Structures are given as structure tokens and as C-alpha cells.
Simulated scan of single mutants.
Amino acid sequence: MTHTVPGDDTWRLHIDWTRCDGRGLCIELLPEILDRDDWGYPVSLTTPVISPRYGVAARDAVALCPRLALTLIPLRDS
């Protein structure tokens, strides 16, 4: 599992709970970041910060989410 300090190439994964219905595709694509809760919905194993190492998988999860419940939000140094 990779933990990084937010920077130019770092993103936060946001899950819109009003759209998510727990299909689990994001969990399959990001097993180092997400796991299932008791009802099958994604829960973060760590702070949902996506480092460059997981960038491609995270973008795939956002693009392939059938309910359009995922967004990548860029993090910038303060």
C-alpha cells in the first residue's frame, strides 16, 4: 500500500453516496484503497488519497462506475 503526501499529481477519491448502489467495480479496481462494508458499499481502507501509482486504476474506476458516483478531486499543496 502506498501513502503519499498530497502534491501536484495526487487526487482525493470522492464517492457520491446518493448515487452509489454498491456494485463494487471500484473496489475491484482499487483493492489497496477500498474495501466493502457489510452491505457491499465501498469504504476507504486509508485516507482516500490517490497517489500517481494508483492514478490509472482510479481514473478507470471513475470512468467505469455505472452510477457515476465517483469523482477525482485534485489536491494542491497549501
Rank of each mutant, 00 (worst) to 15 (best):
A61P: 06
C20M: 01
P74H: 01
L45N: 05
Y54W: 12
G24N: 03
L30Q: 00
A61T: 00
V62N: 09
L68F: 12
R59H: 13
V62K: 09
T46G: 00
C65I: 00
W39F: 15
R53P: 07
A58K: 00
G24S: 06
M1I: 10
G22Q: 03
H3D: 11
D35K: 13
L64Q: 15
C65F: 09
I15P: 06
T2M: 04
I73N: 09
D35E: 15
D38T: 13
T46L: 08
M1T: 07
I15Q: 06
I73H: 11
I15M: 03
W17P: 12
T47D: 11
T47G: 07
Y54Q: 10
G24I: 01
L68W: 12
V49I: 14
R76D: 15
R23S: 10
R53E: 10
I27V: 07
W17A: 15
A61R: 02
T46A: 06
L72S: 03
D60C: 12
L75Y: 02
R67G: 09
I50W: 02
G7V: 02
I27L: 01
V49Y: 07
R12M: 15
M1H: 01
P6F: 02
V56A: 10
D8M: 08
Y54F: 14
R76H: 14
L68R: 15
C65M: 04
L34F: 03
D77E: 14
T2H: 03
D60W: 00
R36I: 07
T18I: 08
R19Y: 06
R59F: 06
G24H: 03
T46Y: 07
V43E: 11
D35C: 03
D9T: 04
V43Q: 09
D16P: 08
E32T: 08
P31E: 03
W39D: 14
V43C: 02
I33V: 13
D8I: 10
V62D: 09
A58Q: 01
R19F: 05
D35R: 14
D35A: 15
H14S: 11
L30K: 02
P74I: 04
G24D: 01
L64I: 05
T4S: 08
G22E: 00
D60Y: 00
I73T: 08
L25W: 10
C65L: 07
I27D: 02
H3T: 12
D37Q: 03
I50F: 01
P52D: 05
V49C: 05
R76S: 14
R36V: 13
D37V: 13
D8F: 10
V43W: 04
V5W: 09
R76E: 11
C20F: 01
A57N: 13
L13H: 02
W11L: 10
